[in-house]
């Protein structure tokens, strides 16, 4: 299945750009998507799936859109 990931904040620089298209096996979770991107952080991280907060263990579906970023805050 296809999952679109948008990275934000420092992740854009740390993990190779803002937009990523992932091809993941059926039954994959958010965690698998993070692994695929090389993101190790599991605590200091915000994951938004289709506009709502999600957790690493949540299952993904084809066409899901993830926004992943550290909760860094600015001004």
């Amino acid at each position: 299945m296809k999952v679109e990931v948008e990275l934000g904040g420092t992740y854009i620089y740390d993990y190779g750009g803002r937009l990523h298209s992932l091809d993941l096996p059926e039954g994959a979770t958010v965690e698998n998507a993070l692994d695929a991107l090389g993101i190790k952080e599991r605590i200091y991280i915000v994951i938004i799936r289709n506009g709502k907060a999600a957790k690493p263990e949540d299952e993904l579906h084809d066409g899901d859109r993830l926004v992943v970023f550290p909760p860094i805050g600015g001004g």
Partner: peptide, 10 residues
Amino acid sequence: GFGTLPDYPS
């Protein structure tokens, strides 16, 4: 707000 930083307040 945070400019281009993603921000999803609930």
